[in-house]
Design a protein around this nucleic acid. Structure first.
Length: 1047
RNA sequence: GGGCGAUUAGCUCAGUUGGUUAGAGCGUCUGGUUUACACCCAGAAGGCCGAUGGUUCGAGCCCGUCAUCGCCCACCA
């Protein structure tokens, strides 16, 4: 027997490094490279996952850790189940986000803007950034144990993706689904680009509500109006500077009707509102009703008439005449009842402008200063212009009043600066048909009929509604971004050429198509693959569109582009459509919906069969993690402290169906080990002083060299600790088995094969059949849970089986058998069998520790690694266990439960009577003969597990007064504590027990005396009767014992 | 304004189609180095399942209302 060289504690660091390298060296995750000696494996069904490509803006955080853990669990399970499993990794160029990060850095460090260094230089810097973070991200994924095929790592801007983007664009253009037009866009004046609605967030800021008078213009032939008491129109606005772009003032055409309707609606709402809301609504209602009597309504009616008669108003400051119009957008119940119309700078006004054919007067330059249309205000920033406009209005006496007001102001998610609505040329994809195809491709919850069987399932199902609702709006997709980082739109403008010139220049080419622009001033030429040179058309100049495509345009193609589309690659044929997409909920529309429509459009097939939406990671305050809040956590710091397996297990364990994941994390002082609570204040700091030893340690935000030199305070969290402990528990169970194997004869004789259904052999004990039955049940549960993305349930099954059943019972029981030479080999065989299955079930979740155990197990017991004649040289490609249904035996489980109950009762007597741990006690059991026969063989286990010697079994068993009595289901336990008995204490215990039982008996008796027996199902009634009888029996036993003690 | 989710032990969370006396981990308390594991073992205490009304023989679970918290979407002159 040699020394045991297995450490008592699992050391994750070394194992992680070793097995990451091993897996890579053996190409285990590269499906087209046959694993050594596996060339003759039959063709397998494909199963592919494409990673939601993380943005190269920065390193991965806990949200990514969760996302990738779940993907890895699924793909590893599929691989072990014999699928041709492929997980494609990659990163996203994340257009605006990445450019914004790099531009911000450029400004912070060098005080330069992108215009200072130019397009090429900026793009180069972004590439450098991308290289740095892609490397970092891949490192992080590898550290987490992700089993991606790294040889296929894609980037949304690489050649393969670029080709797909060009083909997609070309195809859309060819079908006339792409157009360009002037649209009001969300303009980010800082980044100087349009951003989509989805890249905008609203934030409450303090602002003002200004009331401004617009004098009525004298109308030829109708000079009477001024005399009627309406010399001016008053409007209210939160953005007075936009008045410079006003091209009308509007009033409702039927002010009275509209006002009454508003009052009506409000009354209806009051009727159904809660008490608290009622008061507020009533105040609102009163204010509106007042308008009917205080002259407001009359004035609006007059103005409506004037508007219909062609009245004009004078736009103050610029002294321009603009029309007074009637439009239902002007609500009589709001503001002053009249509204200024600025079509080029307000989405609603834009609609009004279209309806009334108003001029769209743009007053803004792209950098957020005012242009020449703003007259004397040109060149000012919006902020300055606002101040001056307000001051000037005041001077002219046109500012009626000013109110304080909280305004929900739109901000750019990327630059965090306010958004300006801005009229700009924009490329769009027409969405109606595409959106409909993506709607039709999912199974609706309500009509999940067999006809929809081939459709995409979104899980949990409740997310389906959001997906469909969003698509149903069918809003056209603005795809142009005024950026330098991204796929450039493959359109070339050509002015002045005739169609014949184009036909000649591109004769015989199918990869170039053109349209006459909707603005009627140039040709739009779209090229599918080649960038067109300036002089392609003799005598004409081709100019490429400056804009790049929205990031989501390339991400939409991800599932088929990474597999080589538009080429018909073998990969595409084999792995597309992919199996499942695992992602988070905020990109269900932006990304998932677009992947579906793009996939259908390009390939005619849905990109994936299922979409699983996982929970969101929140911090201890229940807030989402984000870089700006500083509460994001680098998974590497958790891995360093607890190991990758612990990280993964903890996250999977928390992944329930409808609850977000709150991670409570704190710092650990690297000097004294004290817990330093993470607070909203200190979580953004580069270094923190320990509250106990006062020394400073660094955090993940440390940047300066001095801060970086400090030791890092790791993040600690209870959930990770629990998971780490679990890994260690598994490690030690394996250590126990391995130690016993090494002490054993290392004869090449294979151990007897273990079969759960094998009941004949004398070597097969109750506990063997029990653990095999439990293993089969656990296997079934885990597999089923994982296949339906119920990760937490799977983890619970695994945790409970491994700890409470395998370790606490089976391993403990088997210890005494291992000492008996006649039983040893068989017991070891069962141990190895169960351990092997257990680590294979766990491998998808905790790959490193299970591989470490696996490799050791193969050395100690080579047959353990052999399946159907094949040797699996890694657990990653060993077969995933299938439930041995024949082993599932409820009767055995019930019998074993009796043993457990009895053992627990004996242990309880020991603990509660303070029996010294080393003292052996005796006990006897009164039970029926069948139970006695069952339990008698287990006598040694009571001795080894509870230091209790059984002295008698059966119906004749009688206690003496010096015994502790515990009534159980169908039996009474008598524990001999004559040495230690405390009679009054025993009496008290028994009386308490009798009282407790009385309570139950009473409630059951009254239940059985009620309607219950007529209405409840017979089986339930019968069960209640039995249970009552049982309780009475137990109570009687307790009474008898009490009698004896009192005698 | 529309939608979604949550509320269960001191803390963090489970709880399958309604069916005995509601579970786990952490923390707390008691006792332990028993031939893997103190990152451990044995045991205990601890809950009016947010409030209220209903359906039912029976509700943590189903339905109505309310309260509190969180998230998403839309809108706000």
């Amino acid at each position: 027997m040699h020394e045991i060289e297995i450490p008592k504690q699992y050391e994750p660091g070394a194992a992680q490094e070793k097995w990451t390298q091993y897996w890579e060296d053996h190409h285990l995750f590269q499906p087209d490279a046959p694993p050594s000696g596996a060339a003759h494996i039959a063709p397998k069904s494909p199963f592919c996952i494409v990673i939601p490509p993380p943005n190269v803006t920065g390193a991965l955080h806990m949200g990514h850790a969760l996302n990738n853990t779940l993907q890895d669990i699924t793909i590893r399970m599929k691989r072990m189940q014999g699928f041709d499993a492929l997980w494609v990794p990659g990163v996203d160029h994340a257009g605006i986000a990445t450019q914004a990060v790099v531009e911000r850095k450029l400004f912070e460090e060098e005080k330069k803007t992108r215009h200072d260094i130019g397009r090429d230089a900026l793009v180069q810097r972004i590439w450098d950034w991308k290289e740095q973070y892609q490397t970092r991200i891949i490192q992080q994924l590898k550290a987490m144990g992700c089993s991606c095929d790294w040889s296929r790592t894609r980037f949304t801007l690489d050649e393969i993706c670029a080709k797909a983007v060009r083909h997609f664009f070309f195809k859309l253009f060819e079908r006339k689904l792409i157009y360009r037009g002037k649209r009001l866009v969300n303009w980010d004046t800082h980044l100087q680009t349009a951003v989509s609605d989805d890249e905008v967030f609203h934030e409450a800021v303090e602002g003002h509500f200004w009331y401004i008078e617009y004098p009525l213009a004298a109308l030829p032939g109708n000079t009477a109006c001024a005399a009627q008491g309406t010399p001016s129109v008053c409007v209210a606005t939160t953005r007075p500077e936009t008045m410079l772009g006003d091209t009308a003032v509007a009033v409702h055409p039927e002010p009275e009707t509209a006002l009454n309707k508003a009052i009506d609606d409000l009354q209806k709402r009051i009727a159904s509102a809660s008490e608290k809301e009622k008061a507020e609504l009533q105040t609102e209602l009163d204010a509106i009703e007042l308008r009917k009597t205080d002259g407001t309504l009359d004035r609006l009616k007059t103005l409506a008439e004037l508007a219909k008669a062609g009245q004009q108003v004078i736009l103050p400051l610029l002294n321009k005449r603009i029309p007074l119009i009637t439009d239902t957008w002007a609500k009589p119940e709001k503001g002053t009842g009249c509204v200024k119309i600025t079509p080029a700078h307000d989405p609603n006004d834009y609609e009004v402008g279209l309806r009334h054919d108003l001029p769209m007067l743009n007053i803004l330059n792209k950098d957020g200063t005012l242009n020449e249309n703003a007259g004397q205000y040109a060149g000012l920033t919006l902020k300055k212009a606002r101040e001056k406009v307000v001051a000037d209005l005041e001077t002219e006496g046109l500012l009626v009043k000013t109110e304080e007001r909280i305004i929900e102001l739109a901000h750019s998610d990327r630059s965090k600066t306010p958004i300006e609505p801005f009229l700009n040329d924009q490329w769009f994809v027409q969405m109606d048909e595409l959106a409909q195809s993506a709607i039709d491709a999912v199974s609706r919850v309500a009509c999940d009929s067999p006809s929809a069987a081939g459709n995409i399932r979104i899980l949990p199902e409740r997310y389906t509604k959001g997906y469909i609702d969003w698509l149903s709006e069918k809003r056209d997709w603005p795809i142009g971004r005024q950026l330098w980082w991204g796929h450039r739109i493959p359109i070339w403008y050509c002015e002045g050429a005739s169609e014949t010139e184009l036909e000649n220049a591109f004769a015989g080419r199918k990869d170039v198509i053109w349209q006459w622009s909707s603005e009627g001033n140039a040709w739009w030429i779209c090229s599918q693959t080649e960038d067109l040179a300036e002089g392609t058309i003799p005598g004409r100049k081709l100019v490429q569109e400056e804009d790049v495509l929205d990031t989501w345009f390339s991400s939409a193609l991800w599932p088929h582009s990474v597999l080589g589309w538009p080429e018909t690659t073998p990969e595409l044929a084999q792995y597309y459509p992919t199996g499942v997409l695992i992602t988070n909920r905020d990109i269900l529309t932006l990304w998932v919906a677009r992947m579906v429509l793009a996939g259908l459009f390009n390939t005619g097939k849905k990109p994936f069969g299922e979409v699983y939406i996982h929970p969101k990671i929140l911090d201890k305050y229940g807030e989402g993690m984000s870089k700006s809040k500083g509460n994001g956590i680098d998974p590497i710091s958790v891995i360093a402290k607890y190991g990758a397996d612990a990280l993964r297990f903890a996250l999977a364990y928390l992944t329930t169906e409808n609850q977000d994941i709150r991670l409570v994390l704190d710092f650990e002082c690297p000097y004294c080990g004290a817990v330093c609570e993470q607070t909203k204040k200190n979580r953004v700091l580069p270094k923190i002083p320990c509250p106990k030893c006062k020394k400073e340690f660094r955090t993940q935000w440390a940047e300066t060299p001095t801060d970086r030199a400090l030791p890092e305070g790791p993040m600690i969290g209870e959930r990770f600790e629990v998971a780490r402990n679990f890994c260690n528990k598994l490690w030690n169970a394996a250590r126990f088995v391995l130690m016993n194997l090494s002490e054993s004869d290392s004869s090449p004789e294979p151990r007897p094969e273990v079969r759960g259904s094998d009941t004949g052999s004398v070597n097969v004990h109750l506990e063997d059949r029990w653990i095999l039955s439990r293993l089969a049940t656990a296997t079934r549960e885990v597999t089923q849970s994982l296949e339906t993305y119920h990760y937490a349930e799977a983890m619970r099954s695994l945790y409970d089986f491994a700890w409470d059943e395998f370790c606490s019972f089976y391993v403990e029981i088997v210890k005494s058998r291992l000492q008996d030479d006649s039983q040893r080999e068989h017991a070891l065989a069962v141990l190895v069998h169960v351990l092997s299955a257990l680590i294979r079930l766990l491998h998808p979740v905790i790959p490193f520790v299970t591989e470490e155990i696996w490799q050791r197990l193969m050395l100690a017991s080579p047959p353990a690694g052999r399946f159907a004649g094949e040797t699996a040289n890694s657990i990653a490609v060993a077969p995933y266990p299938t439930a041995d249904e024949s082993a599932i035996n409820p009767e055995v489980e019930k019998q074993f439960a009796v043993f457990q109950e009895l053992l627990r009762a004996v242990r309880d007597v020991r603990a509660s009577r303070n029996v010294p741990p080393k003292t052996e006690i005796a006990f006897s059991v009164r039970c029926d003969e069948a139970t006695a026969a069952l339990l008698k063989p287990m006598e040694p286990y009571f001795l080894s597990m509870a230091k209790a010697r059984a002295t008698g079994w059966g119906s004749e068993t009688q206690p003496s007064a010096l015994f502790a009595v515990v009534p159980l289901t169908g039996m009474d336990v008598f524990v001999d504590i004559s040495e230690l008995i405390d009679v009054p204490a025993e009496i008290a215990k028994l009386e308490k027990e009798i009282a407790r039982l009385s309570g139950f008996i009473q409630s059951k008796e009254s239940k059985l005396a009620s309607d219950f027996i007529q209405k409840a199902p017979l089986a339930v009634v019968e069960k209640e009767r039995e249970s009552l009888a049982e309780l009475c029996q137990q109570q009687q036993s307790a009474r008898d014992a009490l009698e004896r003690l009192k005698r």
